[in-house]
Simulated scan of single mutants.
Amino acid sequence: MSFASRLRVVFRSKANQALDRMEDPREALDDSYEQQLKMLQKVRQGLAEVATAGKRLELQGQELGTRHRRLADQAEEALNQGRDDLARTALERRVLVETEVASLRDQYAALRTQQAQLQDNERRLAQRVAAFRTEKETMKATYAASRARVQANEAAANIGSEISNVGANLDRARDRVAQMQARAAATDDLIASGALNDATATPDADLDRQLSAGATQSAVDRQLQSMKDARSTNRGQASGGRGTEPDAWLTIGQSPN
């Protein structure tokens, strides 16, 4: 792979990563979940406010009920004392209290209805949020697994491409090595035969090589003849015990005394 191709692959990978971050569905799911939680929180705040208002109405109604009973007791006491005027005043105020209680009762009933509706809405919204959370986490896990699978497959594909390139380079290297070995062997043969002069060799080096080869052959012939003579005379000097001595190596290549 050329440098320009590798550069294009790097830029393409960076661009894909940027797009993945911009289009990551997990972030969108989390944002939607946060918005639903905020809606649920607002519903619960409204429910708490309605419940608080209803509690205030209850306390106000209890106070009016206490006053209503006290005015009845005061009217009764006024009659016992022969004070019809005071009894009338107490009863008039008691009627006004009854009017206030009737209005308060209507407001309280409306609040209770509104509270029941809000409780029902809160319960259904909480169920939807919980269901959405479960689905969100499932989708996120599925997306993460799929993304990991894609990355693994892409990595495997890149590894396969790299291995293919390495194999091609290795084949080329083997061919070059084989060619060089063949050339080295050929030049050795040419130099040995004298067809190719070795510029680094000493003058008349070819004669030295041939004489050395002849000397080697003569030494082999002498040793072979010596072994034959020893066998014929049963002396066994070719494989005698001298070879087992510690300094026997010093006599290798020397003629026996």
Rank of each mutant, 00 (worst) to 15 (best):
T134W: 00
F11D: 07
S161D: 10
G61Q: 01
R176G: 05
G241W: 14
Q223A: 11
G54L: 10
T187Q: 11
L64H: 03
Q114F: 02
Q151L: 08
G194K: 01
E137C: 03
E154M: 09
S103R: 11
A78H: 00
S146I: 04
R174W: 09
Q254Y: 09
I191D: 00
S164G: 10
A78I: 02
D30H: 06
Q107N: 00
D171Q: 10
D106I: 15
T66R: 11
E135M: 03
A238D: 12
Q62W: 06
D20N: 01
G214K: 15
D84I: 05
L104M: 04
T52F: 13
S239V: 15
R231Q: 10
L29S: 01
M22R: 00
R26D: 03
R67D: 00
L37A: 11
Q107A: 04
L118P: 01
L79R: 04
H68E: 06
V9W: 14
Q127W: 14
L40S: 05
D189N: 11
D206F: 07
R21W: 01
R242Q: 12
Q117P: 03
A15F: 07
A144L: 00
A126P: 10
D247R: 09
T216F: 07
A155V: 05
N234W: 10
V129L: 02
R112H: 06
A126C: 14
R70V: 06
A152Y: 08
T216L: 07
I159F: 12
A51C: 06
S164I: 09
Q254I: 04
E34G: 09
G241K: 15
N234E: 12
S103F: 04
S2L: 09
Q35N: 08
A51L: 07
A148W: 04
L211W: 09
Q181R: 10
R183C: 06
L196A: 03
A102R: 03
D84R: 08
A205Q: 08
E162I: 15
D31E: 09
T52K: 12
A152V: 09
L40R: 04
N153M: 12
N158I: 15
S255C: 15
L79G: 01
N16E: 05
A72K: 00
V9R: 14
A156H: 07
A215W: 12
Q254C: 07
S32V: 12
R6C: 05
V166G: 09
A238F: 15
Q223D: 13
L71G: 02
A192V: 08
A109W: 02
E92F: 13
E154P: 00
R172G: 08
R21H: 01
R231Y: 10
S5V: 14
Q17G: 04
V166T: 13
A168P: 00
Q210S: 08
V177Q: 15
S255T: 13
V97L: 01
V10F: 08
D85C: 01
A173K: 06
E63C: 11
R235K: 11
G214A: 14
K228V: 06
G160Y: 13
R172V: 03
V50I: 02
R26M: 01
E98Q: 07
T244N: 06
R222V: 11
L211Q: 04
A15R: 04
A152N: 07
T216G: 08
S32Q: 09
V50D: 02
K55S: 04
Q41H: 14
A230S: 06
L7K: 07
V129T: 06
E34K: 14
T99Q: 10
M180K: 12
L29H: 02
D188T: 08
